[in-house]
Design a protein around this nucleic acid. Sequence first.
DNA 1: CCCATTTCTGACAACGTTGTCCACTCTCTT
DNA 2: AAGAGAGTGGACAACGTTGTCAGAAATGGG
Lengths: 352, 352
Amino acid sequence: MADSARPARPARRRYGLRPTMKDVAARAGVGLKTVSRVVNGEPGVTPDTERRVQEAITALGFRRNDSARILRKGRTSSIGLVLEDLADPFYAPLSRAVEEVARAHGALLINGSSAEDEERERELVLALCARRVDGLVIIPAGADHRYLEPEIAAGVATVFVDRPAARIEADAVLSRSFEGAREGVAHLIAHGHRRIGFIGDLPRIHTAAERLRGYRAAMAEAGLPVDESWVALGPTHPERVRADAERMVEGRGSAAAPVTALLTGNNRVTVTVVRVPAVRERRVALVGFDDFELADLLTPPVTVIAQEPALLGRKAAELLFRRLEGADDAPRRVELPTRLIPRGSGEIPPRS
Amino acid sequence: MADSARPARPARRRYGLRPTMKDVAARAGVGLKTVSRVVNGEPGVTPDTERRVQEAITALGFRRNDSARILRKGRTSSIGLVLEDLADPFYAPLSRAVEEVARAHGALLINGSSAEDEERERELVLALCARRVDGLVIIPAGADHRYLEPEIAAGVATVFVDRPAARIEADAVLSRSFEGAREGVAHLIAHGHRRIGFIGDLPRIHTAAERLRGYRAAMAEAGLPVDESWVALGPTHPERVRADAERMVEGRGSAAAPVTALLTGNNRVTVTVVRVPAVRERRVALVGFDDFELADLLTPPVTVIAQEPALLGRKAAELLFRRLEGADDAPRRVELPTRLIPRGSGEIPPRS
DNA sequence: CCCATTTCTGACAACGTTGTCCACTCTCTT
DNA sequence: AAGAGAGTGGACAACGTTGTCAGAAATGGG
């Protein structure tokens, strides 16, 4: 009898034939609430009753239905993460860090990739809100986040990472892109370069814009002119990036002389540019935004402006849980420093 | 009046002050079910009524509570993914592929990292079951998955990827690790190597065991003896891996002669081994399991046995959704081929 | 041995949604 | 003008859980 898996009860219509607390109660011969108490470890149940209930739970294979629990309690103990691409080596550790913090707070992580598509981001975020996630961590793709206002007003804590929110006030955890890019370019200038190119991501992306600004600032501070053929922003497809890099290095399409050094705007751009012959043959210097695995083993080893993606994620998640625990001071903007790591490619002197 | 955000109604006690369909109905002056109809795009609502309801929805910032919907409907339209480490470059694309398939089926993805910890895997999986995910994709860390039996019996579709389930029957999507490793070792043997080392992951991990088996098979087929000092399985910490690699290359700790070539058991091991001086100086040949970014730009370029992580993920997710759509034939095991990509490091001849 | 307390237990309502089913209002036909 | 039929709208129960509250049983003291 102990091994008869199903109780003598009309078949359930739900797909799962899942036993409920009611079934457990019936089998153990106790009240519904007593089962609830046992399941949740609440006090006030005699050891004997508890044992009977536990037996019934095991025999039926009962597992509490969290949907019902969530409905009743109003909190889901889950947070949402929306980013561009889970598989990007920059975002993967960020995501993992968010997960670890969530786990430490007993929350599950629901995540989705926006693929840098504004509409898809919106859909995802709203789907997460409909699930009533307690909070959201967002690497925004869109240019307008006012659609989030009702959600935030309704109590969904929201933290933006890597890029700030557009047109609303919200917490944000960012890297100092402007300063990082400026430092990278200054590094190249210090090694004698005067004609430096910048290849970055789509200009609508905040970090791309900031890094371009940093590039221009460093050039201006050194009193160097910038020929517009030295700046190329666009999607990070390898074809586009490679074409722009080769064009700049060869000085095609412009009256200006070719560049002697390049600043690349993120890790995707950098790993494409390292394949350009001029880089491999050390005919141009290179500084890349974002560190990446094996950068130090390439020929030449790649000088980078490193961010800490895991730290970005951790800080963002911690800020989120601070909010969930009730902190309601003004939205804050956390900025993390970048770190220039000279490895060789940035220290190549300009060719005469 | 149109901008008074809250309806004249006693304050809600839930944290979110979320309006419900009832609130919308009251504001629009219609019945509850009519609101439901509008929200779900069901027919039977006059354009005028629909407009009134839509206005109320916008004015109140209503968003349907999916917890309640899920409770009522019995399906969550979400699937769970449990893997070792979301940030591992091998698993990240796998995860992304699962996400894409889920998205195509209108499902959300909830995921978690097990950190190769059996207990943590169990906790995660059961938490996902409590959330009543419709299905699970698991890269198992544990050595016994019988704890999943009640869940599977209750209708949670489950597909294992990369490694098979232990002690239960379940769908699995795998790479041909045995054949891949055998091919890699055969490749080295074809280039004249007779003393080949294998550095792999923990022996309890299925893929590690299979690859070791493939290594042994290839050696045996060539009539080559295997000195046990040439085999090192263990955690993929860089320190451990580097120590084992250097030991084998130098022939320390054994009467046998040093190895002239190495097979590395996964991408984590490979990226550590490429830093070993003997590899960089081409004193030993190297074939690595798993392709990885920039492998072709290293010195020497790394010959690999490539798997397709994204394909693994896609196949697994597709199989899962086939199950969710009702397919209930016997559990199947899908095996995907690996592909040897010669790049240089595997074609180095043995030193005299 | 009885009453007062404490401990344990269970009935019931609520969470916000959807499915069922019935009632109502039109419009059109005869 | 009345009846049929289509087209709308709404009352109500149910999903599985938890919080409230009151009743029952057990304990202890006089």
